[in-house]
Design a protein around this nucleic acid. Structure first.
Length: 553
DNA sequence: TACAATGACACA
DNA sequence: TACGTGTGTCATTGTA
C-alpha cells in the first residue's frame, strides 16, 4: 500500500497508489496533514511517498504522528543520480521533474546553517517552504517522478539490492528525524562538574583556571610569557628557537620531542579542545531540558554515513560521555558492531577463507591463528592496511602474507583501487556510487608548486579513496539497514537516541532492557540475511546495559 | 570587517 | 607501534 502526499501552497494532497505506483483512488485535499496521516496509518500502515522526509516529517512528529515507512524522493534521486555518474546534480522533486520534462533544472537550496534548539533567531533562518513544482499539480508531479524513479531502479544492475538501499535510506531519514527530536539524555550538572574537574573554574573573560595556568607554564618553559599555545605558528617558532625542528605541532609529532614544554603542550591541547568544542558554551547552546538534540543528516557523507549539523554529535569525546546518563529507572542499551569493516570485506569479496575467519567472534584472532602464526596485532595491521591503502611502514610484510593467503579478498580492494586510479567509479554492495574525481584530478600538469609527481600522487590518493569507499559505504549500509530493521522491533520497548556509524543507543525502562537487547540481536540477524543472504560471515553486536554511556567501553 | 584557507583534534 | 579513509568544529591567519 502506497500513499503519495504532496504539499501545496494551501494544504496537502493525498492519493493512494497501487502496487505499480499508479493512482488508485481519488486524490483528497486536506489543510492539516497530521490527522489524515494518522488515519491512514491506523487503517493501512502505507508506505508514504513524499518529496523530502526532512521537510515533512518533523511537523508530523510534533503533532504526535509517527509513520512506519516512506519513500523519500530526494534521497532516492541523489542515489540514482550518483549511480548514473551524475553526482551532485540537483536532487529536489522540482529538479527531477524538470529533468523529466526538459525544463530548466532549478538548483537545490543551499544547506541551512545549524540552528541550535530554542535559539532566539529561529524564525529568521527558517527554511523557505519547498517550492511547489511547476506544471500540473504537486501530486501529479510527485506521482510521475516516483514512477520514473521506480523505472530507473528497475534498470540498475542489481535492482533488488538497490531497492533495499532506497528503503534503508528512506527509513534512515525517519529515524534521523525522530532521534533529532527525542535527543540524547544529557545531564548538564554532571557535565559542568566534569568541566570544573578537568579545566578548573570558568572565567568570565578568558580561559578557565587550569588552562590559564598551563598557558603560563608553557610560556615559562619557552622563556616567553606572551606565547599563545593555541597558535601553531608561535609554538613552532618557539620550538625552533629552542633548537627543535619539527614540521608541525601535531600531537603525535610533539610526542617524539624531548623538551620540558612538550608534556605541558600536549595537556593544554587536550583540555583546550574540550573547552572550545564541548565546554560551557556548547552546553548552553545544545543541551536543553536534559537532552542533547543534534540535527542528523542522512546521506550527508559521500560514503552514505550520516552527518550532523550543529553540536558535533558524531565527535563527542569519550571523557564527556560521562554526562550521558539514563533517566531514573531507565537504562541505555549500547550496541556496537565490532570489527564491522573487515567483516564487510569478507562478505562482499566472497573470500571463503576470510569468511571462515569472520565466522568467529574475534576476526583478527581467527585470522592470526589461520595465517599469521598467532600474531593478532600483525593480522590486524595487515587487514586494515589492505582496506585503507597503507603504502609503507612495517605493515608491508604482513600485507604480503595477507595477499598470499586471502587472494580473493585482497583482489577485491586492489581492484577497487585500480579502478579509482584509472578514473573510474566504484559502488557499494547495494549500489551506492562514489562521486567522480574532481575536474582537476585528471589534469596531467604538475601542481602549482611545479611538482611533477603531483598527477601520480593524485591518482594514488584517488585509488585509496575508492579502495576504502567500497568497504566504508557497505559498512554504512549495514548500519543503516540495522537501524531500519531495529526501529519497528523497538515499538513499546524503548527509543533510539543515538547512532554513530557502527553504534546504536536505545533509551528504555530498566525492566525492558533485556527485551531491547534481544531486539537488537534479532535486528542484527535480519540485517545480515537481508544484505548478504546465507553468508558464513557473522556480524556480532556487542550489547551492554548501562546507566551511563561512559560505562559502556 | 568579512570571508576563506589552514591547522589541529575529536569521532567512526 | 605508523599516518590509511571519512567527517565537524574551533581558532588563527591571511586576503579581499
Amino acid at each position: 500500500m502506497l500513499v503519495a502526499v504532496a504539499g501545496q501552497e494551501q494544504g496537502f494532497q493525498l492519493c493512494p497508489l497501487d502496487d505499480l505506483g499508479r493512482p488508485s483512488g481519488a486524490p483528497m485535499h486536506v489543510t492539516d496533514l497530521a490527522p489524515a496521516v494518522a488515519e491512514w496509518e491506523r487503517r493501512a500502515q502505507p508506505r508514504w511517498v513524499w518529496a523530502s522526509t526532512a521537510e515533512v516529517y518533523p511537523a508530523l512528529l510534533a503533532a504526535g504522528v509517527p509513520v512506519g515507512r516512506c519513500h523519500d524522493i530526494e534521497l532516492t534521486e541523489a542515489l540514482l543520480l550518483g549511480y548514473a555518474g551524475r553526482w551532485g546534480e540537483p536532487r529536489s522533486l522540482a529538479a527531477a521533474w524538470a529533468r523529466l520534462t526538459g525544463a530548466p533544472v532549478p538548483p537545490d537550496p543551499p544547506p541551512r546553517p545549524p540552528v541550535p534548539p530554542g535559539g532566539g533567531q529561529g524564525e529568521l533562518f527558517a527554511p523557505a517552504p519547498p517550492p511547489t513544482a511547476g506544471g500540473g499539480t504537486g501530486l501529479e508531479t510527485l506521482v510521475k517522478v516516483y514512477a520514473d524513479q521506480r523505472a530507473r531502479i528497475d534498470a540498475v544492475e542489481q535492482p533488488r539490492r538497490f531497492r533495499l538501499l532506497v528503503a534503508a535510506e528512506s527509513a534512515g531519514a525517519l529515524v534521523a528525524a525522530e532521534m533529532g527530536r527525542t535527543g540524547l539524555p544529557w545531564r548538564a550538572d554532571i557535565h559542568r562538574a566534569l568541566l570544573v574537574e578537568l579545566l578548573g573554574e570558568p572565567s568570565p573573560v578568558g580561559p578557565p583556571r587550569r588552562l590559564a595556568e598551563l598557558s603560563a607554564a608553557i610560556g615559562e618553559a619557552f622563556g616567553d610569557p606572551r606565547l599563545h599555545p593555541d597558535s601553531p605558528a608561535e609554538v613552532l617558532r618557539a620550538l625552533r628557537r629552542a633548537g627543535v625542528d619539527v614540521p608541525s605541532t601535531r600531537s603525535w609529532v610533539l610526542r617524539q620531542v624531548d623538551h620540558p614544554a612538550v608534556p605541558l603542550l600536549l595537556k593544554y591541547k587536550e583540555l583546550y579542545r574540550i573547552w572550545t568544542a564541548h565546554g560551557w558554551a556548547w552546553l548552553d547552546t545544545w543541551v536543553h531540558d536534559g537532552r542533547f538534540r543534534a540535527e542528523y543528516v542522512p546521506g550527508g557523507v559521500v560514503s552514505g554515513r550520516w552527518a550532523t549539523r550543529g553540536g558535533g554529535a558524531l565527535q563527542i569525546p569519550k571523557v564527556v560521555r560521562r554526562a550521558v546518563v539514563a533517566d531514573p529507572g531507565w537504562r541505555l542499551v549500547v550496541a556496537d558492531a565490532g570489527q564491522l569493516e573487515p567483516r564487510v570485506l569478507a562478505a562482499v569479496s566472497g573470500d571463503r577463507r576470510l569468511a571462515a575467519a569472520a565466522a568467529a567472534g574475534d576476526l583478527y584472532a581467527a585470522l592470526a591463528a589461520d595465517a599469521f602464526a598467532g600474531d593478532r596485532a600483525k593480522a590486524k595491521v595487515a587487514l586494515l592496511g589492505a582496506m585503507y591503502g597503507q603504502t609503507g611502514g612495517d605493515a608491508l610484510p604482513a600485507l604480503a602474507t595477507l595477499r598470499r593467503n586471502y587472494p580473493v579478498a585482497f583482489d577485491y580492494v586492489e581492484s577497487a583501487a585500480r579502478t579509482g586510479e584509472a578514473g573510474g567509479l566504484v559502488r557499494s554492495w547495494l549500489g551506492r556510487t562514489c562521486p567522480p574525481a574532481s575536474a582537476t584530478w585528471a589534469d596531467p600538469e604538475p601542481d602549482a608548486g611545479g611538482d611533477r609527481s603531483a598527477p601520480v600522487a593524485r591518482a594514488r590518493a584517488r585509488g585509496r579513496f575508492t579502495r576504502n569507499f567500497v568497504i566504508q559505504a557497505t559498512a554504512a549500509e549495514w548500519a543503516l539497514t540495522l537501524l531500519a530493521t531495529l526501529r519497528p522491533l523497538l515499538a513499546g520497548l524503548g527509543e533510539l537516541v543515538f547512532f554513530q556509524h557502527d553504534e546504536v543507543l536505545v533509551h528504555c525502562p530498566a525492566e525492558r532492557a533485556d527485551a531491547v537487547v534481544a531486539a537488537v540481536r534479532e535486528a542484527g540477524e535480519r540485517t545480515r540475511r537481508l544484505l548478504f543472504g546465507d553468508t558464513e560471515v557473522r556480524f556480532p553486536l556487542e550489547t551492554r546495559i548501562v546507566e551511563c554511556y561512559a560505562d559502556a567501553k
